[in-house]
Every structure is written in structure tokens, then in C-alpha cells.
């Protein structure tokens, strides 16, 4: 870890100004940043500690939505009764991620900006265009099991690892960003992350000094909330594929569908093709499978991660079925009676 200057911010405005002036990096929970600094993957010269800023409250907003201070911990957000009642998919996503120890530290703002878990990003010395622009993508012709299948480029196939952000995207969250000039501007969460294109090192459009200060959830969409996370072990693992769904069905017809995916794309992926296919459609297993198929149509695997395409299809259909309260119609193969 290279040496860095450390200072604690007194206010969000002061933090943003200081970071804009010095190019400092914010540290909140540090659960991702300290990990990457130890490996030399991230090498900030200066840290501005925003972990003690007062923007950690969660409050009702006038429009029936919720205002969440970006310094709130994942634990606080997941357990908030209003989140639990009205934005349940967000609580489910948060509790599916990491562990209590990490959720106690990790903040909302930090979680939105967490970096990929691509093993080439982590292994300093091997090629990675995100960590060392121009060095190449190690994963594309290497081990790609964790990599994305949607929205990738020839320069980078790394997947975004967050659970929380997937739910936030499904819920149309808006981010209040404090700029170095002291102004607060608003940004759709879906517009925060960039696709890699030819600049995978640029993951978002925030300028130095831009501090995510608050997150607004608009009034919740109608329907049942379900979060599915498919992973290699039962807990404490990043998603192979995750699906956030808020689905409303009336008289057998889908009246509102919000769907977002994790683990399959360089950013939390709003599944607009699924939503378009479903709205107004009959809530049947067949319709759910067809909608999932439409979302994954442009997907491309890289060998190891080819499985994510059928897995994502199944997970989307299964999650929609759970939300709609219908049974998946899955062939059980050569299953036999007990001899």
C-alpha cells in the first residue's frame, strides 16, 4: 500500500471541495477500498474520510418515497422498517450480500461504487485494462467464469458485483451528488455506471470531488418484491446471477414489472426487454421464459461463463414466477422413483 494523506471531512460540502482541490479519494466503510489498496490495485494519494458525516439518516420523502443518507450502513438500510415494508427487494438484496460484519461497515455510497471482482483486476502483474489501461483484458481469453455476458466490450468483460445496486436500479433510485463547487445535482442510478467500451478504467461519470451524498427512492412500484441470488455457496459469495423483481399482476395480467440483473453485466443491469415483453402480457411461465429469452438475446459468453446465459434465463423466469405466485414448469429429466 502506498502512503497516503488522511483527513476527516467535517461536512459533505467540505469533503467535496477538498477532494475536488486535491484529487483525493473518499473513504466510507472502506470494505472494498482498503482491500484494493493493500493489493496496490488502487493507489490513492489522499483519503478524505466521509464515514462520520451526518448523512446517514433514512427519512420519508414528501412524494411518498424515501431519502437515504449515503453514509448509512448496509445493515441500517436493510433493517429500516420502511425499506422492509415498501422497498422490500432492496432489503432482500442487501441481506443477500456479504456478511453482517461487512454490512455493518459498508455504506450505501461505497456500495454503489464498488469495483469488480474480476480476478485479473485483482492480480497486479497480469493484464487488465480496467486496472492498467492498455495492458489488455486477461479474462477474455483466460478464466472468465465470473465475467459479464451483457454490455461487455473487447477491452473488458468484468461484471459489477453489487447486490444492493441491482435493487436500486429496479427501484429507479436517484442519486444526489455533491460537486466540488458545493452544488447538489441529481442523477438516475441507472446512469451512474458506464459500460466499458474502450475505457473500462472509467466506470462512471463522477468527477473528482463528486460525492454521492444522498439516495432518493421514488414511491415504490406496485407488486410483489423478490430477489434471487444464484451463487457457488449458500452464503458469503458474489452472485453468479442475481435478479431483482417487483411484479404486479391483476387478473392474470402483468400490470407493472421492474426487473434488474446482477452478475451478468459491467453495471447493475436494468432488464428493460423483460419489462417491455411482460407489461400487459399474461403472467404465465411461458411468457416469463420468453421475456427472459428476449433480454438475453444479445448476450455473449466467453467460454467459462457461457453458462450464465441459460442460468440468467432460468433465474429471471423463476424469480418472475415466484413473484407471480405460479409454479415453474421445469422438466425434471431422468428423475426416477426410489427403487
Amino acid at each position: 500500500m502506498r502512503p497516503f494523506g488522511y483527513e476527516r471531512a467535517e461536512s459533505a460540502v467540505a469533503a467535496a471541495r477538498r477532494a475536488a482541490d486535491t484529487g483525493a479519494t473518499f473513504i466510507g466503510g472502506g470494505t472494498n477500498l482498503v482491500d484494493l489498496m493493500k493489493l496496490g490495485v488502487m493507489t490513492p494519494e489522499r483519503l478524505v474520510d466521509v464515514s462520520r458525516l451526518p448523512n446517514r439518516d433514512i427519512a420519508d420523502a414528501d412524494d411518498g418515497g424515501l431519502a437515504i443518507g449515503a453514509a448509512a450502513t448496509n445493515t441500517a438500510l436493510a433493517n429500516d422498517p420502511r425499506v422492509r415494508e415498501r422497498f422490500r427487494v432492496l432489503s432482500l438484496a442487501l441481506l443477500s450480500g456479504a456478511t453482517p460484519q461487512i454490512r455493518n461497515k459498508a455504506t450505501v455510497g461505497g456500495n454503489l461504487l464498488q469495483r469488480t471482482r474480476c480476478p485479473y483486476f485483482y492480480e497486479v502483474g497480469l493484464p487488465c485494462n480496467k486496472r492498467a489501461p492498455g495492458s489488455g483484458c486477461g479474462a477474455r481469453f483466460g478464466r472468465s467464469r465470473d465475467a459479464a455476458v451483457l454490455g461487455t466490450s473487447e477491452h473488458c468483460i468484468a461484471a459489477h458485483p453489487s447486490d444492493m445496486a441491482v435493487a436500486m436500479v429496479a427501484l429507479d433510485a436517484r442519486l444526489g451528488v455533491r460537486g466540488g463547487d458545493g452544488d447538489l445535482r441529481w442523477l438516475d442510478v441507472d446512469a451512474l455506471h458506464r459500460l466499458p467500451g474502450d475505457r473500462p478504467d472509467r466506470e462512471h461519470d463522477l468527477a473528482p470531488g463528486d460525492l454521492i451524498e444522498t439516495v432518493r427512492l421514488p414511491p415504490p412500484p406496485p407488486g410483489r418484491h423478490v430477489y434471487t441470488k444464484v451463487r457457488d455457496r449458500a452464503s458469503y459469495a458474489f452472485a453468479l446471477v442475481s435478479v431483482a423483481v417487483v411484479l404486479a399482476v391483476e387478473d392474470g395480467v402483468v400490470t407493472s414489472a421492474r426487473v434488474a440483473l446482477g452478475g451478468v453485466a459491467p453495471k447493475p443491469w436494468r432488464a428493460r426487454a423483460v419489462e417491455a415483453a411482460l407489461t400487459g402480457a399474461r403472467a404465465t411461465w411461458r411468457a416469463f421464459c420468453a421475456a427472459a429469452e428476449a433480454e438475453l438475446a444479445p448476450a455473449r459468453g466467453h467460454g467459462d461463463n457461457d453458462f450464465k446465459i441459460p442460468l440468467a434465463r432460468r433465474a429471471i423466469a423463476g424469480t418472475l414466477a415466484e413473484a407471480a405466485g405460479i409454479a415453474p414448469e421445469v422438466p425434471t429429466g431422468g428423475r426416477r422413483a426410489t427403487p
Partner: peptide, 23 residues
């Protein structure tokens, strides 16, 4: 030393955290 095992768990203000990821 990277928040992946839990061996370093301590309590801060009574809440559990990973001391390896805390400065």
C-alpha cells in the same frame, strides 16, 4: 487480511466488524 474469512472480527461500539478492513 482482505475481509474474506472473518477471523479478525472484533466489536466496535458493540457491533461486529472486520478489523482487517478498518483503518
Amino acid at each position: 487480511d482482505h475481509g474474506q474469512c472473518g477471523a479478525c472480527t472484533v466489536l466496535i461500539g458493540g457491533e461486529r466488524v472486520l478489523s482487517c478492513l478498518a483503518l
